[in-house]
Structure formats: C-alpha cells, structure tokens
Design a protein around this nucleic acid. Sequence first.
RNA 1: GGAGGCGUGGUGUAGCGGCCUAACAUGCAGCCCUGUCAAGGCUGAGAUCGCGGGUUCGAAUCCCGUCGCUUCCG
Length: 392
Amino acid sequence: MTLRFQVIGQAGAARVGQLETPHGVVETPAFFPVGTQATVKTLTPDDLQAVGAQGILANTYHLFLRPGADLVEELGGLHSFMGWPHPIMTDSGGYQAFSLGLALEHGVGKIAKMFPGNAEAPTRPTRKRLARIGEDGVQFSSHLDGSQHLLTPETSIKVQQQLGADLILAFDECTSPLSDLGYTRAAMERTHRWAGRCLDTWAADQQGLYGIVQGGAYHDLREQSGRFIGALPFFGLAIGGSLGRSKDDMHDVLDWTIPLLPEDKPRHLLGIGEPRDLFTCVERGIDTFDCVAPTRLARHGGLYTASGRLNIRKAIYRDDPAPIEEGCACQTCQGFSRAYLRHLFVADEILGYRLATVHNLHFILTLMARLRQSIVDGTFVEVKREFLAHDR
RNA sequence: GGAGGCGUGGUGUAGCGGCCUAACAUGCAGCCCUGUCAAGGCUGAGAUCGCGGGUUCGAAUCCCGUCGCUUCCG
C-alpha cells in the first residue's frame, strides 16, 4: 500500500507532482470530477477514463444515507462497488453542514455574489435548514426521509474507512459567505478541535487524510487556520470554506493561506473550479481540485469552449451543424452537431446530458493536462495568458 | 335531420356575474449554478376569454343569434 506525494517540478509557486495512492498515481495538478453518489452523473467508469479522469470525489454524507456504509463495505468498498479501480477521494460530509444548513437558510453558495445591502436579490429561494451544528458534530434531518442522523468527526472518519477511498477529508464546518467574523471564528475553532478528533480516529497507513483550513474570507482567521492545520500531522491539506464574494476574494484567501502550508504535502482546493480558476489557483500552489461545475453545468446546457461558455439551448444553435468546439477531440465533438445536442436538450433526452458531460470533462481535464505540461516546459505563463485572453 | 357538449396565450386546461388590468401546466426566450437536496433554480414574453347582439351598475362567466369542432340518436 502506497501513499506518498512528491513534487517533481516547479514554476514559481505552481508545481507538478505525483500523488501515489493504493489505486494508482495521480499526476498533479489534477482535477477530480465529482461523483457524489458513487457515480459521476451520466457517465460510466469507461467514459471517465476516456475523458482523462485520474480520480473522482465521492461524498460521505450522501453514501452514508444511501445505500449505507455497511453495504458499500460488504460489497468490497467504493472502488469495487462502483467499478472504478482508480483513485477516489471522499468528502467528509462537512460541506453538507453548510449546503443543508446555512446555504439553504441564506439561499447562497460558497462564493456569494449577493450580499445583504447589494441591490441584486439572491438567485435561490431561502428555505429551512436541514443541518444543525453542535460541538459534538452535525445533526442532519435527512433530505430523503426526514430521519435524524448525527455525523461527528469520529463517525465521518469511520464511514470513510468503510467506504475505502484512497484520500479522505477531515470533518469540518464550511461557513456561509454571509457569516460574520464572530461566527466564522467560532466555526473555525470548532473545526480545529474536530481536526484533532479526526486525527485520533484515522488509521494513517490505510488512507491519506487531509486537514481542512477554514476561516472564511477573513485574513486573520485564514492565517490562524493555515498555521494550525498546516502544523498537524495530516497526509495532505485542503482549503475549504467560504471564499468570499468574488474571484479576487478567493485569490486573497489562497495568497494568505498557501505560504503557511508545508511544501511537501499535497494541497487540495475544495469545490473549485471553473476553467480559468485552474490557472489562477495552480499558479498559487494548488495541486488538486474537485468541482461540480463542469458536470452540473453540462447537464444544464452550459458547455465549455476556448472562447467561453455557451448555452446549447439557445435558438441560435437550432440548425448549427458545427460541433460544440471546432478541433475538440472529445467523443461528443467528434460525432455530433450543436443542432443535434440542442435537440436532445430541448427534448429532455438523456443522451444530451451524457454527451454534454463528456465534452465538459474532456475540456477541463485536457486543459489541466496542458497546464501540467506547461509547468514542466516552462511555458506556464504563456499558456495561461493565451487561455485567459480567449476565455470570456 | 334531431338533441347535447365545447370554443380562454403555441398546446392542454382552470375560472362559470364583481377579489380576472384572467390562473396553472407545458412550450418559448434570457439569466444563474464552484467539497451536487441540483436532468435544478430565477426572470421574462405571450390571450381584450370564437364572432355579433342583448340583459346588468358590472359579463370570460347569464340570454339570443351565428360560425367551427365534437358526442349521442335517426
């Protein structure tokens, strides 16, 4: 059983590395598509390999509720259960403390453009929260059947052991961008206490455990958290939590945090990002990413191209015989027109969601591979400049 | 030939005297989505209620006529 990370090349703060896991080596920087319920929606493991995925991220809370950790363990663990023999990371369920808690109550995501006082209204309706946070852990009302479940640092790590991912995450609390300094500090301190409990429960030789830096968009808190989490004996470090109200805020958070983390450990940025984010975050020293954006956007008709995102449902594509992107090597662009894809979306045909997902993942994973190579070649700055110049 | 029913945005329907400057679904258009409650959400355009006349303070709603569709009987 191998669990090891080594940096093999650098360009400024950007770095190329190898993350060895029991299920294979991840060449970093890398992007992990999200497969919350042990499936990257609409794709088979073969599809995933074809688009260039090295690893995926699944979710503890969702799998704990359904089908249950005991069952997955009985069936040989996640890799065997879902037929994916390559690296898997599991999120701890800490994010659900937010997404089913304050995110519902505030009607926001982890990067909130809408703040109280801003003229623009929230894009999502506010709803009653399904998660309540206490010192011991998070009390969830299942979104499936309303049943009550307490997830703690200990139970989260144990469930992740049963699921058997290669890389696992500490149980933390992701705060809302609308949380004030006082609340964000209290949540961060609680996450720090939970970090110790996660370490105490962790079987270090089995899985690589990542500690999570919190602190919202507050400078002092991020520094405090970066120092604290960075000094603990985790296998890797992740940056989580609210990243403010803009990309600038997000970059500030990375600039404050990353220099405080040990250089020899892998750094994961939770829940980011969009194509351009890969450049700006790798540039600051991030090694791995996970994000629902490419897959979710694909299912909603948002398709990546070198000149920005297009919405395939638009009328202008009704009779467009061109592929999504001229010159794209993905299965979708090789065989299908924009007009056909638009038809599939308008007709609500399943194939549309799959073809769109294939394209977006191929796009982002190919971009990541190019970016990785550019660090080796010493052309990162040029490649980045060129990409950003075209991306709208 | 006779009796009845129905005609409301592109489509299917709701409303059956004032709260209708007409509702809902779907479709259409645009926007949003960053550790997935997410094949989801938000916003918008679109009908003077078949046509004509009448009753009434007031009609999509009641009455008469007319046209169209439809069901049953012959």
